[in-house]
Write a protein that binds this DNA or RNA. Sequence first.
RNA 1: CGGGGCGUAGCGCAGCCUGGUAGCGCACAGCGUUUGGGACGCUGGGGUCGGAGGUUCAAAUCCUCUCGCCCCGACCA
Length: 477
Amino acid sequence: MVRKITPASVDFSKWYTDIVQAAELADYSPVKGCMVIRPYGYALWENVQQGLDRRFKATGHQNAYFPLFIPESFIKKEAEHVEGFSPELAVVTYGGGKELDEPLIVRPTSETIINAMFAKWVQSYRDLPLLINQWCNVVRWEMRTRLFLRTTEFLWQEGHTAHATAEEAVEETLRMLEIYRDFAENDAAIPVIPGRKSESEKFAGAVDSYAIEAMMGNKWALQAGTSHFLGQNFAKAFGTQYLNQDNELEYVWQTSWGVSTRMVGAIVMVHGDDQGLRLPPNVAPTQVVVVPIWKSDAERAEVMAAVEKVMAELGGQFRCHLDDRPELSPGFKFNEWEMRGIPLRIELGPRDVEKGQAVLVRRDLPRKEAKSSVALDELSSEVSNLLEAIQANLFAQARCFLEDNTHQSATYEELCEVVADGFALAYWCGSADCEARIKEETRATIRCIPLKQDGKPGHCVCCDGEAREKAVFARAY
RNA sequence: CGGGGCGUAGCGCAGCCUGGUAGCGCACAGCGUUUGGGACGCUGGGGUCGGAGGUUCAAAUCCUCUCGCCCCGACCA
């Protein structure tokens, strides 16, 4: 139902929660730290799923499903992996009325159980590459939770692949990172910085982790997707071996990569405004809402006849919704659909029918600039143009915001200043000590070392030591 | 686990300091008027005041204990 939204400038965190709840995306559940995704939020997630899945299929990946429960011994097989996850595991010790011989872990991620199967499936170089994805839920016992961004249970996809060579696996890792970038920027309209994670931020068990980092409306960073080069760590732990063309036994090289329901939170935090949600047309569950307006019964008949024609014409091409609820005023409906982020609204009333036109209102522009009128016989081409323009404009707005709030920092003082309210791009020598000091003193962490570098070496912003690459420093969710 | 804040109708809150009939707004139900930017009027329903104990003639209000939630840190997609 309709609620007031706390302005983002007053309290960004409250603004975010208000939008998620007011737009009926999700709600807190009776189970602490868990989230109920409501139909509207789930429809948005389904569109995210489809956008990603289409890209996975196009690159030869297949979907499969592995069990929710993982034997404790599996998790313990890879040393770094256990260490990274043990505090946040949910463990089942009872089943069927008696204590289990071996506790079962509710999966925090599925590398281990998937490798147990990969070890059986892979015998020959002819079985490679093995390209598997699964859509599922995972559980991580987080201390503090936030709707979509961090919940105890969350939905995601996790891709797992096995390859004959390290080069192939690295290539796959970066291919999937690029797919995430492509989805984030072209469908979710979220500009991202693809890069490599620092040693301290990488996935437990990976050789190298990569991520796409996005800037939220409060200028904090959000990791919107990750892709890991696992090397042979899990292959060795689980004995995933194959015979190469020379009849020699070798361990496979692996990758894993994931995007979660957090992406929905990112869409809210990047595009939302004080009126509510703003959804990019490519992922919006409803792209166009039609609001008919009438006073008398005679007007109603006239308007509805026109509206039916419009729905018939647009319905086949776009995701449309007709809001003909009689008991609510048009103004109320306008506000409600704005809050829910529908990219384009069509208003059709007696005055429009008389003139053979409709009023189109864009969600991506301020109210004063958002309205235009179009002749009914040009409606569908105009809707098509506007949806494209809205998609492009939301991305452009977000990209400007990211660029305007990202600054090069040559000195430590500059870094401290920049990082208080934005992203800092600065040389980093690669030492964990410098990373830790910066985190301690500014609360900013290394979000990633961008793949794109200008190639010139420099001096570490912290210790002045030699540095080959620049890193992105920011506060993060 | 540390540091703050809050528990009163479905939701958001006032009342508490200074004890004395349980309140307001929104939402909900009925009727009527409305409908091009969150309509209005009248009527109505809805409460273990988070829980337990204590002080008192009398507790939402004072005291003690307890439970729960939210925010800020530590953990993290």
